[in-house]
């Protein structure tokens, strides 16, 4: 199977473009975050009640009602643009992966560069899903502006990871090595990518939860910053829900990896560094779920555990692949 160089070049161009768009989106999110109105808990409650009183249609601003074409404040417009940019970036990013796949005639996550890229895409998509779901009134736990406040903080690690993947980890488009030529790469690696992306999002939500809690415990601390974030309760719930939905997927990814390892390496589990690190991350997330059910461990401590879990995932992605290099053929650059 030869590689189509033209398509692969287009893929690289799309990749670079998506990074630029993401950076723009990040700056726009931060713009809204910095100049937007600070929402206090009281004001938020009020607006929810008003919306509820007027029924569904005004809240989403679509059906029936004609909204007074009042000019939206600048910050809100920035936020809207940020979301549009994120969607655009995700489309270009997806095109980059797709082109890689077509160029090489295989799934586009056959090496570290492609893997890192796909994880970032998964994180961005996880973010967009949460954003759009939360925009539906009956689910809403924070105002759209508050929610968008998360955006910049998610785009930041995404941009950094993409930058590292595109420079340090970059790999020329090439066919798969024999060890990776298996349909399990579709099953196992896809599950791992989706979980890593969603857990990245959950981890960011937990970090913001910690910051917001500081503000709520003492409104004099982090006043400007904290007041613009969703409530700690909403952040906690967003982080928890993302983790809870993805934990079975992550479990599945590990089991699928073990099934593949049985066929490829002759044993289903051998404490290869990558396996070990995935196991550690899994145990840490299990601890997170336990902590949520243990008196005295909910809230701040649980959030720290979630962040620790994310740290292990990132460690697994970078340090283990690059420095330790076990059997996993992605390893070694």
């Amino acid at each position: 199977m030869s590689v189509n160089q033209t398509l692969s070049t287009y893929s690289d161009m799309a990749y670079a473009t998506s990074v630029v768009i993401y950076i723009a989106a990040m700056l726009l999110y931060f713009g809204e975050f910095a100049y937007g109105r600070a929402g206090t808990v009281g004001r938020r409650r009020e607006s929810v009640l008003v919306n509820a009183g007027r029924g569904e249609s005004t809240a989403t601003g679509v059906i029936g009602h004609v909204e007074t074409p009042k000019k939206r404040p600048l910050a809100e417009r920035l936020g809207g643009m940020a979301v549009s940019m994120t969607v655009l970036g995700a489309l270009v990013h997806a095109a980059s992966l797709l082109l890689r796949g077509v160029a090489t005639g295989r799934v586009p996550w056959g090496n570290m560069y492609e893997f890192g890229s796909a994880i970032c895409l998964a994180a961005v998509i996880a973010w967009l899903i949460v954003l759009f779901r939360q925009l539906r009134t009956e689910r809403r736990e924070a105002t759209p502006a508050q929610l968008r406040g998360l955006g910049g903080f998610l785009m930041l690690p995404v941009v950094v990871l993409l930058f590292l993947s595109g420079t340090v980890l970059y790999a020329q488009a090439a066919p798969l090595q024999p060890a990776l030529q298996s349909y399990w790469i579709v099953i196992h690696v896809t599950a791992a990518i989706i979980s890593s992306g969603a857990l990245l999002f959950a981890g960011v939500a937990s970090v913001l939860y910690l910051l917001r809690s500081r503000y709520e415990n003492n409104p004099l601390k982090l006043t400007r910053f904290g007041s613009r974030l969703p409530t700690s309760q909403a952040l906690d719930r967003i982080a928890y829900r993302a983790t809870v939905i993805i934990f079975p997927v992550w479990t599945f990814a590990i089991v699928a990896g073990a099934i593949w390892a049985e066929a490829a390496w002759g044993r289903f589990w051998g404490w290869d560094p990558k396996e070990t690190c995935s196991f550690i991350a899994w145990v840490v997330y299990a601890a997170y779920l336990h902590a949520r059910a243990t008196a005295g461990w909910r809230g701040i401590r649980a959030a720290w555990i979630n962040i620790f879990g994310l740290a292990v995932m990132i460690f697994n992605l970078f340090f283990i692949n690059i420095v330790v290099a076990g059997l996993h053929s992605y390893a070694g650059l």
């Binding site: 404490w271 196991f279 145990v283 330790v324």
Partner: peptide, 9 residues
């Protein structure tokens, strides 16, 4: 989790 860590490092 902690005890498994040296196994990776």
């Amino acid at each position: 989790a902690l005890a498994a860590l040296p196994g990776a490092l």
